[in-house]
Simulated assay, not measured.
Amino acid sequence: MAHYDLAVVGAGIVGLAHALAAARRGKRVVVVDRDAQANGASVRNFGFVTVTGQEAGDCWEKARRAREVWAEVAAAAQIPVLLNGLVLTARLEESEAVIDAFLKTPMGEKCRKIGYEEALSFVPALRREAVRAALYSPHEVRVESRTAIPLVSRYLAERYGVEFRWQTSVTAVQPPRIETSNGPIEAETAVICPGDDFSGLFPERIATYRATRCKLQMLRIRPGAPVSFKTAVQSDLGLGRYLGYSMLPEAVALKARLDVEMKAERENGIHLIVTQSADGSFVVGDSHHYAATPDPFASEAVDKLILDEFDAVLDLPGRTISERWVGTYAAAANWRFTDKPADAIRIAIVTAGCGASTAFAIGEETIADLYGDAA
């Protein structure tokens, strides 16, 4: 039986982040996943590594560090970075006030307010009426989730010798013995990264955090004619939802106006994110609905609300929808938690939609806690 220093349960971005942090310390790591490849939130999102707009404090700080690690990993693993930066458009007076307030905070470092002409140089399809002002951030990067996550796995295997056990369910974790559907594994420590599966390992521990699940609807849109964006795009609704903006005192008036004028969008947790893929298509979303077990069905009415906001901000005649899908992720009052069932075991769950943006920093933190601060 092979022996490992660390067993990671779950091969999504949070699990891979822990594997990387341990492997960089010279630890022998095995990653175990019940599917044949990563198939959850990590491959169903925008691939948008977001710093600007994350909640002030721990989340924003973790996103800043994770962005640095993403740059290192993308270069080493030959993961194409498709976009750099963000343009967030504001068509409302109250939205511009939130941008002004945000730029006065430490989180606004290297960000700036720009006008329509400069915004158009980043995003050539912007509608004039959608841009009273815009926030430009240089911090974000965008990768293609569907290919980036497998490339991270391959990089871990080839560069650090991390082993992967696919199509293998873990039934019990009691280091140094890990019981799986394909026989036991010996590992001195274990980190469990179950995503939004709360009923598998240590359900009684996870239950104390009162987590639920968030369902989101997303689409892939193809433009009628070729167009090239330099940055990702967001809009006023993002200022009312992303906590780095929406918790500012100046956001109170904006949220009140959005609650009246965009009532349906707010009730369905919609805010616009648009990221472009290498083939010229756009990943567009999203909505947010919460339930212990969300239904698997995509609502045409919700898709229409997303598309209406897309069309209000971007002028792309002849656009068509080529894909629709539903994703889920864990959600709770706090944006993440790391639980300690035993000295040699940790459970790490991101309970917000920012796993791709923060996981690498969380992995470093957890591994430092398990093995000591010295790398």
Results as ranks from 00 to 15, higher is better:
P341A: 05
L254F: 00
L258R: 08
P341G: 11
F297C: 05
E300F: 15
S287V: 09
P249L: 10
G327E: 08
S322H: 05
D311T: 15
A291T: 09
G327F: 02
Q276W: 13
I349R: 11
A331W: 11
V260K: 14
S299G: 01
L254T: 10
R266G: 07
T320N: 09
A330S: 02
A359Q: 03
L305G: 12
A361T: 12
A361N: 00
V350R: 08
L258Y: 13
A264T: 12
P317R: 06
S322L: 10
A278M: 14
Y290F: 14
D295E: 00
A251Y: 01
G285L: 01
D259P: 02
I306L: 09
V274S: 11
A292R: 13
V350W: 06
A332K: 05
A368G: 15
A292Q: 14
Q276L: 07
A312V: 10
A330H: 02
S322M: 10
G318W: 03
W325P: 05
N334E: 15
E267F: 06
H289C: 03
A356D: 12
D259W: 09
D311V: 15
I306D: 07
A348C: 11
A298H: 06
A264Y: 02
A264V: 11
I347E: 00
Q276V: 07
G355P: 09
V302Q: 07
E323L: 01
S287N: 02
F310C: 11
V313Q: 02
P294T: 08
R346Q: 02
L248N: 05
V284L: 12
K255N: 01
F337W: 08
L258D: 00
E365Q: 15
P249Q: 08
E300H: 15
I367F: 03
R257S: 13
I306S: 05
E364A: 05
V302E: 09
R266K: 13
P341I: 07
A251Q: 03
A361V: 10
A333F: 15
R266L: 05
E261C: 10
K255V: 12
M262A: 15
I349V: 08
P341E: 09
A342D: 01
R266D: 04
D303C: 15
R336L: 08
T293P: 00
L314A: 08
T351Y: 04
D311G: 09
L258P: 11
H289A: 14
A278W: 05
V252S: 15
V260W: 13
E300I: 11
A359I: 02
G285C: 10
V274Q: 11
S357L: 04
W335T: 05
Y290Q: 07
A332C: 08
G269P: 01
